[in-house]
C-alpha cells in the first residue's frame, strides 16, 4: 500500500481498482475488528446513549421476558429480561465498559512490571536472573482463582481485588518471554559494541535491547487481553470478581445458572458477548503475530 499508493489512486474508479482495494482489505482482520467495535468498543464509550433501558433498574412485572423472537417476547426487550426485570441488551452494552477498564489496566500494570523484570533478569543474569525467575515460578504456581477467593473472603469483591489478582499471575508471562528473548539478543555484536563504546547498562537496555523485543511484547499483550477477559469473567462468575449489581458479563452468566431450565437467555447472551470479544481478540493477536513476529508462526 505504501509503495504503490499514487499509481492506484488514479484507477480507483475502474473495476480492477475496486478489486485491488478489496484484496488489500482482505489482508487485514476486518471481521474481528468489526465485531470488537460493535460488541466492545462502541458500547464501552456510548452505552448511555445507545442502551434502550437502565442497566440496574428493572421492571419487576416484566421479569424473565423471553427474547423478541420467542413466544411471549416483545420488541421492547430484544434479548429478554433477567429475574429482576432488567433489560439484558442494556446490561450487556453497559458491561462492555467494565471489561475494557479491567483488561486495559491489568495489561498495562503487569506489562510494565513484567517487561522491566524480564529485561533485568535477561541482561544482568546471575543472581538477579535467579531471583526473578524463581519469583516467576512462584507466581505461576499460585492457583489464581483460589487466591482471588481468599482475598475476596476478607475484603469483599471489588475492582481492586480483581485487578490485583490477575496482575499477580500475569506479570510472570511477560517476564519469562522477555527474558528469553534478551538472552538471545544480548550476545550479539551490536550489544558488545555499545558496551565497548561506553554506554551505560540502562542505555543499552532501553535503546538497544527494548526495541528488539517490543514486537513480541505487543503480540503477547494482544493475545493476553482475551485471557484476562476470560479470567475476569470467571472470577465474576464465582462471585470473586466485579461486585453486584454491576452488569459484568461473568456475573450475568452466573445469575442465569440456576435459571437454565426456565430462562436460557439470561446466561446465554452475556456468554456470547464474552466469546465474541475473546475470539476476535485472539484472531487479531494471531494476525499481529504473523506480521510482527514471523518466527513464531507455527506455534
Amino acid at each position: 500500500m505504501e509503495i504503490t499508493a499514487p499509481a492506484r489512486k488514479a484507477s480507483w474508479y475502474s473495476p480492477s481498482g475496486l478489486v485491488n482495494i478489496l484484496r488489500e482489505a482482505r489482508r487485514y482482520p476486518l471481521i474481528p475488528f468489526a465485531i470488537l467495535l460493535a460488541v466492545l468498543l462502541i458500547p464501552a464509550f456510548f452505552a448511555q446513549n445507545i442502551a434502550p433501558h437502565h442497566p440496574t433498574r428493572g421492571q419487576f412485572a416484566e421479569r424473565l421476558t423471553p427474547p423478541a423472537w420467542q413466544e411471549g417476547g416483545s420488541m421492547k426487550y430484544i434479548l429478554g429480561t433477567d429475574k429482576q426485570g432488567r433489560d439484558q441488551l442494556s446490561r450487556i452494552l453497559h458491561g462492555a465498559k467494565y471489561v475494557l477498564i479491567v483488561s486495559l489496566t491489568v495489561i498495562a500494570i503487569s506489562g510494565v512490571v513484567g517487561v522491566s523484570l524480564g529485561l533485568i533478569a535477561g541482561y544482568f543474569g546471575g543472581r538477579y536472573d535467579m531471583l526473578i525467575m524463581r519469583a516467576v515460578d512462584i507466581a505461576l504456581s499460585i492457583p489464581a482463582i483460589l487466591l482471588a477467593l481468599a482475598i475476596v473472603a476478607s475484603r469483599g469483591p471489588s475492582f481492586g481485588t480483581v485487578i490485583f489478582v490477575i496482575c499477580v499471575i500475569l506479570w510472570s508471562r511477560y517476564a519469562r518471554q522477555v527474558r528469553g528473548e534478551v538472552l538471545s539478543i544480548k550476545n550479539q555484536d551490536f550489544i558488545s559494541r555499545a558496551q565497548v563504546a561506553g554506554s551505560s547498562s540502562f542505555r543499552i537496555i532501553v535503546r538497544h535491547i527494548f526495541p528488539n523485543v517490543v514486537n513480541s511484547i505487543v503480540v503477547l499483550a494482544t493475545l493476553q487481553v482475551g485471557f484476562v477477559i476470560l479470567l475476569e469473567s470467571s472470577l465474576s462468575f464465582l462471585g470473586a470478581g466485579i461486585p453486584r449489581p454491576t452488569p459484568a458479563w461473568g456475573l450475568m452468566v452466573a445469575e442465569g445458572r440456576e435459571l437454565v431450565n426456565a430462562a436460557w437467555w439470561v446466561s446465554f447472551f452475556p456468554g456470547v458477548a464474552i466469546s465474541l470479544v475473546v475470539l476476535s481478540l485472539n484472531l487479531m493477536g494471531d494476525w499481529l503475530r504473523d506480521r510482527l513476529d514471523p518466527k513464531q508462526r507455527n506455534l
Binding site: L230, S233, S234, G256, R257, V260, G271, V278, N282
Partner: peptide
Amino acid sequence: QSLPPFWLGI
C-alpha cells in the same frame, strides 16, 4: 481458547 468454560458448561 475463546469460549468461557463456565458458560460452555451452562
